[in-house]
Design a binder for these strands. Structure first.
Lengths: 212, 212
DNA sequence: GTCTATACACTGATAGAC
DNA sequence: GTCTATCAGTGTATAGAC
């Protein structure tokens, strides 16, 4: 019998502090970039002394790595909303809705992802060549099947996917520009609804699927 | 009569070196971000000693400022390709073509712009609230007129513009991801043509304009 | 586990010889 | 106008008291 009970609570002090640090880091990396993000600022936003950040994570790169992986996981989970069994209209529709929801709920993660890709994917390259490529090929095959079956207009599946990714993520990555052109105010609930509707209307009709 | 002729050649040594530095800086800022871009690296890419970079530009921020302004000018010039006198189909068509051309010819500038916006537009905020807002409102008014005249489907003009900006710029900003999914190879001429065609087909048809 | 103090490396910018 | 040497400031990471 061990002299001391092993802590196995779901919310141990350790995991709780790590979570706080990772959330702070996501925000700081998004707003300042990897090089511009100082561990001091991450610590300040997390409400901890700088040394504690280094106690939970060996290096700044390790924090960054975790943040990027987290976002990739969330996105791949959303990608499963692209359920080909539902047919083109419903599958694309739900996927777009899900992507807009994520742009709204995870704007920092979206920006970190965008910066990671823009800098040549130094951390996430393996995943691009693995999981993402596999997923894209799979969905592409289904789209081509729908096209061959006359269910939708012919289009290169890759460009359709890029169109969905770009239009939805734009509302996160360029949120500052959008807010500025919106009179300096962030989007309201109804405006976010309008985003979904606009994107779905144009893309679905654009590939020959009646939107409603 | 002056004792010394004032150099007025179009390609003075000064302006030539400045141009080399700005081009190097655009690339370095795009790939490493503002904080990650070192003056040493900019100098190396430009093929000059670091001290010379500081001779031509007082600070790193001044170089960055110039790079961002340059890109903004290029984009606003492209924005004039959105010629409302041509009617909706031709105006949107030419604007999309122009934006894709720029994504291909200025991938670094596009990335610097994206990062600038993602970080809250610390340098370019005034231009967003000025020229860009004015241009967007002007084009938005024309789009609404076309909609009222039954020339195209109803859509919030802002979302249509964001759709064009996002889909086209995506091929620059996320070029690395796109190349990875393209077997690691950059797009060929014909693939870039296909990009234009795909975007125009979906968006034009999506707003009720027959593409060809 | 927490936090202060500090070591060590790097970067922006400049001085000053040529 | 060019370039070497250098300084001042900042940032990551750690040592060590509590």
């Amino acid at each position: 019998m061990p002299a001391k009970a092993i802590p196995f609570r779901k919310f141990s002090k350790r995991s709780q502090n790590q979570k706080v640090i990772l959330e702070a880091a996501e925000k700081v990396f998004a707003e300042a970039g990897f090089a511009g993000a100082t561990t001091q600022l991450i610590a300040d936003v997390a409400g901890l002394p700088k040394a504690n950040v280094h106690y939970y994570f060996k290096t700044k790169e390790e924090i960054y790595r975790r943040v990027v992986y987290n976002i990739f996981d969330i996105w791949m989970e959303a990608a499963s909303a692209f359920d080909t069994a539902l047919g083109p209209k419903e599958a694309l529709s739900r996927y777009i809705d899900k992507k807009v929801d994520l742009a709204r709920s995870h704007p920092y993660g979206s920006k970190v992802w965008a910066a990671e890709i823009m800098h040549g994917a130094p951390i996430i390259q393996d995943y691009l060549e693995g999981q993402l490529l596999e997923w894209s090929n799979d969905r592409g095959t289904h789209i081509e099947r729908w096209i061959a079956g006359g269910e939708m207009d012919p289009i290169d599946p890759a460009h359709l996917l890029y169109m969905i990714w770009s239009t939805t993520q734009h509302y996160a990555d360029f949120g500052h520009q959008i807010n500025t052109l919106n009179g300096g105010k962030p989007y309201s609930d109804s405006q976010w609804q309008a985003v979904k509707k606009s994107i779905k209307t144009v893309i679905l009709k654009g590939v020959g699927l009646s939107p409603d």
